[in-house]
Design a protein around this nucleic acid. Structure first.
Length: 424
RNA sequence: GGAGAGUUGGCAGAGCGGUAAUGCAGCGGAUUGCUAAUCCGUCAUCCCCUAAAAGGAUGCACAGGUUCGAGUCCUGUACUCUCCGCCA
């Protein structure tokens, strides 16, 4: 959600952002609605003002005057209620339109219509040249009994995963490694629930755009969050933080649920795209300053890159183009991990800056130390690590001729010093 | 699942149908000068118009209702606490 004042002053810029992001929103309607609302509100407040003045007079009035006041006050009250009635649909419309206003993308974001036009900005690590026939992650998992691909889907449905044996040990190690790393970087690590009210999903910005990919528990009025970001973002809903408290750095650890409604038939093999997974998510609230936000964006991106480097997985960093980044985003960089089994890079992390778009929805503000003014904060987020997806590139990259998998040095302390898994 | 009690500013806490007390902390100032005290002011949000001020509206968990008027009365919801039940 953008600031309405900004839209009033810069309708052209907002319209251009909509074009760049391939979004459709009637800004002129939004502005004319805004105008009508202000007019009606002023009229309503004038009536309420009359009523309040009469109310103040009431206790000391004579009986005759009291009767008069009652009548006048009632009239004003009714008049105000009438205006409020007129206001209601306008405010609903206004709100619906406002929810869809786009963050203006950073000037250096590549223009494009879909992920096909994303731009690779760097590649780190060299895809390994294998001197033996390689296995993909499913073959490796089946070979070692590290997964189960028949009964589990029969019991739990498609896109269900069961990770077993030493691979589960590696998965646990990856979580620990990542959480420790982020703790060292100053994050407060925390587990968060996966179940949440819809308000949190609106706050974050997933609703009303993408209702389809969220599981719901209608009996309990709850939804299953697709990322810890949903909860982390609402932790300070309605707060006015102190500037000295910023930046807030949270790392959330949670089960994540996604219906993958738009991905039917895509990535059906193995554990790359499953309905339930586990993720460590980085989340930051910082002051309303683009430079500061850019700094935090680089920080979040770098944290993820350090993790990938420590895991010795080759990856590339992609600048997502305007058409692929979503309404709220100012900048978005994906990290894509090299997957030898698919012979290509696949998304493993997604790093986003939203400026104050999410904070407007969630009502996260802070008091500026110098001016004392209340401002909307800026928020950012990035994946820390998501499993089991990362296991795909992890075991495919580190496989040996005998099918065993090398454990990178950084992870060995979390695995009791093991240098390989699946060694006979 | 059952019963009861709660939810008021950063914090504590009054308020029982008539303009949201007071204290602590914070901020600004004055004054005095032995680790500090005292005094004064300020200290919710938003809106409109502003250079600023002045105005005004809203604000007592959330959403409704009753009333000329609701923090206060009524209904629903959420959450917190206590007890019972169930339970990894």
């Amino acid at each position: 959600m953008l600031d309405i004042k900004f839209i009033r002053e810069n309708p052209q810029i907002v319209k251009q952002a909509l074009i760049d992001k391939c979004l459709d929103l009637d800004i002129d309607l939004l502005l004319s609605t805004d105008k009508k609302i202000i007019q009606l509100k002023q009229a309503m407040e004038a009536e309420l003002q009359k009523r309040n003045a009469l109310s103040r007079e009431m206790p000391t009035a004579t009986d005759a005057r009291k009767a008069e006041i009652k009548e006048l006050s009632k009239q004003s009250g009714q008049q105000a209620a009438k205006i409020a009635e007129e206001l209601k649909p306008l405010e609903e419309l206004f709100h619906t339109l406002m929810e869809k206003t786009p963050t203006i993308p950073a000037p250096d974001v590549p223009k494009g219509k879909s992920d096909a036009e994303n731009v690779v900005i760097r590649q780190v690590g060299t895809p390994r040249v294998f001197d033996f026939p390689i296995k993909d992650h499913v073959d490796l998992m089946e070979m070692h009994g590290w997964g189960e691909f028949k009964r589990i889907p029969q019991i739990c449905g498609t896109r269900s995963a069961s990770v077993r044996g030493e691979l589960l040990q590696a998965e646990l190690a990856l979580w620990q490694f990542t959480l420790n790393k982020l703790m060292e970087k100053g994050f407060l690590i925390m587990s968060v629930p996966a179940m949440t009210f819809d308000a949190a999903l609106y706050n974050m910005g997933q609703f009303p755009f993408d209702v389809e990919s969220v599981y719901s528990l209608p009996k309990d009025n709850l939804y299953l969050a697709g990322t810890a970001e949903v909860i982390l973002n609402s932790l300070h809903a309605g707060d006015i933080l102190k500037e000295s408290d910023l930046p807030v750095k949270y790392a959330g650890f949670s089960p994540c649920f996604r219906r993958e409604a738009g991905a039917a038939g895509k990535d059906t093999r193995g554990i790359f795209r499953v309905h339930q997974f586990t993720k460590v998510e980085q989340y930051v609230i910082c002051k309303a300053d683009v430079q500061e936000s850019d700094k935090m964006h680089a920080f979040l991106l770098n944290n993820a890159e350090e993790i990938m480097q420590a895991l010795e997985i080759p990856y590339q960093v992609v600048a997502c183009c305007t058409g692929d980044m979503g309404a709220g985003k100012y900048r978005m960089n994906d990290i894509e991990a090299w997957c030898p089994g698919q012979n290509r890079y696949r998304e493993s992390h997604s790093c986003s800056s939203l400026l104050d778009w999410q904070a407007h929805r969630t009502n996260i503000r802070y008091r500026e130390a110098e001016s004392g003014k209340v401002k909307y904060a800026y928020t950012l987020n990035n994946t820390g690590l998501a499993t089991p997806r990362i296991l795909v590139s992890f075991i495919e990259n580190h496989q040996q001729a005998d099918g065993s998998v090398r454990i990178p040095k950084a992870l060995q302390p979390y695995m009791g010093g093991k240098e390989f898994i699946g060694k006979k």
